[in-house]
Computed example of a mutant assay.
Amino acid sequence: MKLKIGYQELIQEAMAEIETLSLEMASDLLVDTNVVFVDIRDVRELEREGMIPNALHAPRGMLEFWVDPDSPYYKPIFGEGKRLVLYCASAWRSALATQTLQRMGVPNICHLEGGFSAWKKAQLPVAEKASKSHSG
C-alpha cells in the first residue's frame, strides 16, 4: 500500500506552520505562571520516564476535546489565555497536535524542540508523574 502522505511529510508540514521552542527558552519558562507545559504522552510513558515539573497531562487522544469549550470534556485551563507548550517523547506527536490546535484557533501555542527525550538528555528538571491527573 502506498500512502498519499507519510508521517514524515505530515510532521515536516506541521513544523513549517508552528512555533518550536528551544530547550533553553522552554526551561526559562518553567517559573512563568502564564505558561502551561502540556504533556501529551501516554500515561505509561509518564509513569516510566517522569515529566516536566508542574506539566499538565493531556493525553493526545483527548486533546481536541479538552480545548474545545463546546465539548463535554472541556478543561477550563485551556481557555485561560496562557501560553501552551506541548511536548511528547520526540516532538513528532506534539508537532502534529500543535498544528491541529493552532488550526482550531487555540492562541499562543507552541511545542518543545526534541520532546521530553531531549529535555532529559539536557539534564533539565524532571518530576515524577503525580498520582492523580490535573482536572483543570
Rank of each mutant, 00 (worst) to 15 (best):
W66Y: 15
L63T: 03
E45F: 14
F65R: 08
P53Y: 10
L46R: 13
V36W: 01
S94T: 10
A97K: 01
T98Y: 13
W92N: 12
P72Q: 05
R93Q: 14
E45T: 05
W92A: 15
K75D: 06
V38L: 04
P59N: 06
I77N: 03
P59A: 05
A91W: 07
R60C: 02
K82E: 04
P59F: 12
Y73N: 08
L63H: 03
M51H: 14
I77C: 08
G79E: 02
L63E: 01
V85W: 12
A97W: 04
M51R: 14
D70Y: 12
A97M: 02
V38R: 06
E49H: 14
P59W: 10
E47A: 12
F37Q: 04
R60D: 01
M62S: 00
E47T: 05
G79W: 09
L96N: 10
L96M: 15
S71E: 05
L46K: 07
G50K: 00
Y74Q: 05
E47N: 13
L84C: 08
A91L: 02
L96P: 02
A89T: 08
N34C: 01
V43Y: 09
R60Y: 14
F78T: 01
V43G: 03
W92C: 02
T98M: 08
L46P: 02
V38Q: 03
R41Y: 02
R41A: 01
S71W: 13
H57R: 10
I77L: 14
E80G: 07
S94A: 12
Y73G: 00
T98A: 11
T98K: 11
S90Q: 12
V36T: 07
A91Y: 06
I77M: 13
F37N: 06
C88P: 13
